[in-house]
Design a protein around this nucleic acid. Structure first.
Length: 596
RNA sequence: GGUCCGGUAGCUCAGCUGGAUAGAGCAUCUGCCUUCUAAGCAGACGGUCAUGGGUUCGAAUCCCGUCCGGAUCACCA
């Protein structure tokens, strides 16, 4: 039982006995006492003041006295206004620390066969261009979220739905066929996704030129010219052929997609994210159609005279939503329904989480309603994990204007910067080239990941590529650095053959208690992060812990401490702090180096 | 216009299931490398928590109005 629970229960009993008021222990939230006051935990007594018909001070004092008399863990207390500050019996903290030390999987729950099955969809790229900064935020959030949910005891399936079909793919294919046939990743030395992306850009360039010349010669408006464009027409024809399974087109499509996947895999791997199951829209887009027709039969949807199929969502405060075009083809929504169908056939999903940008809030509101109407039991409370966009100082990223920050370039840049900063600070002296490079990689990526994960996912954020990312202050490298330093202390202790002894009888001082308290909060932070789907919560917790440790670190010379028991206590604190940092960072998908 | 989300220090952000004097980092300034790693620590400066009302012992936090910013409301994905 945690110290919080202990106090909750004790206070609830006290209130019952003193005033005959029934209070749910969970409703009592002990908070960490502010530094200005003496105490470890604080209870706000205002809620009982009225019923007890006494002043806040009286109530606080009475509860405090009751606790001292009846709860051995409570040493003493003080009351200021309506705040009851409780001092815990100091050596009790040692028991807490010991418990943490003896719990290998501290803060993490292991899922069992009966645990809820949660599917997390994230990344979901198009196959016509490489991943960019927006995907990076998506990938990191999705992966971290999956780790957190798993640590909260859920069975988690990470999934990716690849948008591998549609007009955009045909554009790349057409450009490749027209102006680059024969070009392969091998022949050009480019990563597959970049190669295809380049052809997509090439198509757009030629298309624009064509439209311009049509507007000039045929005296048309821009829209008319776009509609009349032979290039676009060719792309459309290609799409039709693709849908008709034209062997030549399909073969080319398959080959080019393979290149892209090889490129994506490389990027994912470096980023440290992975998937348990990948779905492709080329497999799912027809499935949704069936499901919609099924819904039509059941009267959930209706058909207009032109043959198109719609859902009426006005009862739910939304509009009418198109699900099948008059020519019978699928729209985006239909595909998502199809994907849901396949997924449900593959897994007994209890909860579905979609990590998708906030520009699709409406889409998921609709999807949730539709899936529910169609009988998916997790449809109604599916979670759209909606995150804000990453903007550049100049504004939004525009692929047409070439202001997109490429994921691969970005990672390269971060690692390069980390390498430069490290060597400037002399951190890499005496290390092998391999070790130095591994550290640069860990630190560079750590900086990037932490930067993107520490902010509230809902908020739009600005990313300035020119200034890259800071390595000081509330950053990944700062946390990694603290971890590396702790590991260094522990290594030294091992080298010097320091024996650990029993520290249970030692009275920890204020700073030590504060640190133990902070570590003891970790499991509830993980649970809370899982409940509110917030990697940022973990990030901020770890940062606070690190700040706390740093204060401790500068006050004590741990290895030279003469009292063996005190030294053991401090080493135990170092050890548990390091473990929590490592676990916490792991939940964010960030590695920590043993030295840096 | 409807719906949803955001607005906290000069900048980037915590805090939001109501609690004590609203916290970090960056930037600016001041100290600290002869104790396990100074990517650090200690301190100074910096706030009408967009705004007006309401709820109450108490509001950055909850409710309503207003202003500002963003997203969305396609036979696009």
């Amino acid at each position: 039982m945690s110290i919080d629970n202990l106090i909750q229960q004790a206070v609830a009993r006290a209130v019952k006995e003193l005033y005959n008021i029934d209070t749910a222990p969970d409703a009592i939230i002990p908070q960490t006492t502010k530094k200005e006051f003496e105490g470890n935990l604080t209870i706000v007594v205002f809620p009982w003041v009225k019923a007890a018909r006494k002043s806040p001070e009286q109530v606080g004092t009475e509860i405090g006295n009751w606790l001292v008399d009846n709860e051995p863990a409570v040493d003493r207390f003080n009351v200021i206004k309506g705040f009851l500050n409780i001092v815990i019996e100091p050596t009790f903290w040692n028991t807490v620390l010991k418990h943490i030390q003896d719990t290998p999987s501290y803060g993490i729950s292991t899922p069992t066969e009966d645990s809820p099955l949660v599917m997390v969809e994230y990344s979901s790229p198009n196959t016509n261009k490489p991943l960019h900064l927006g995907h990076v935020r998506n990938n990191l959030l999705g992966y971290s979220l999956a780790c957190i949910l798993k640590a909260c005891g859920n069975r988690v399936v990470k999934t990716n739905i690849v948008n591998d079909r549609g007009i955009h793919i045909c554009k790349s294919m057409l450009a490749w066929k027209k102006w680059g046939e024969g070009a392969t990743p091998e022949s050009t030395g480019k990563k597959g996704d970049h190669l295809i992306g380049d052809f997509y850009v090439l198509f757009d360039k030629h298309f624009k030129e064509e439209v311009k010349s049509i507007m000039a010669t045929e005296n048309m408006t821009e829209d008319e010219a776009k509609a009349a464009s032979p290039l676009m027409q060719e792309a459309r024809e290609m799409l039709v052929k693709w849908e008709q399974r034209d062997p030549e087109i399909r073969q080319m499509w398959q080959m080019m997609n393979e290149w892209v996947y090889a490129g994506f895999d490389q990027t994912y791997k470096r980023m440290g994210v992975s998937f348990d199951k990948i779905y492709y829209e080329s497999d799912t887009y027809l499935e949704g159609k069936e499901k919609v027709l099924e819904g039509l039969e059941k009267g959930i949807m209706y058909r207009k005279e032109d043959g198109s199929v719609w859902a009426d969502l006005t009862d739910d405060g939304l509009d009418h939503k198109l699900l099948l075009r008059s020519d019978g083809t699928s729209v985006y929504m239909t595909q998502d329904i199809g994907t849901a169908k396949l997924r449900y056939a593959d897994y007994p999903i209890d909860k579905m989480i979609y990590v998708v940008g906030n520009e699709q809030n409406y889409h998921f509101q609709v999807l949730s309603l539709l899936l529910d109407k169609l009988g998916f039991k997790w449809g109604k409370d599916l979670v759209h994990f909606s995150y804000g966009m990453v903007e550049l100082p100049e504004g939004k990223m525009k692929s047409r204007e070439g202001t997109v920050v490429d994921a691969d370039d970005l990672m390269d840049e971060m690692v390069t910067t980390a390498r430069e900063v490290s060597s400037e600070l002399g951190k890499l002296d005496g290390l092998t080239a391999d070790d130095a490079e591994a550290i640069a990689e860990t630190v560079g990526l750590g900086a990037l990941k932490y930067f993107l994960l520490k902010v509230d996912p809902r908020k739009n954020m600005t990313f300035n590529p020119k200034e890259t990312i800071d390595f000081n202050g509330n950053t990944g490298p700062f946390i990694q650095y603290t971890y590396a330093r702790i590991r260094s202390v522990l290594r030294r202790a091992g080298d010097e053959g320091i024996q650990t002894v029993d520290y249970l009888g030692v009275q920890p001082n204020e700073k030590e208690i504060a640190l133990i308290q902070a570590i003891a909060d970790f499991p509830s932070t993980v649970a809370e992060a899982g409940r509110s789907y917030s990697p940022a919560l973990i990030a901020n917790y770890v940062y606070d812990l690190v700040k706390q440790y740093n204060q401790f670190y500068h006050d004590y010379s741990i290895l030279k401490e003469e009292d063996a028991a005190v030294r053991s206590l401090r080493l135990a604190l170092c050890d548990t702090t390091a473990r929590v940092i490592k676990t916490g960072m792991g939940l964010l998908g960030i590695n920590v180096p043993e030295r840096m």
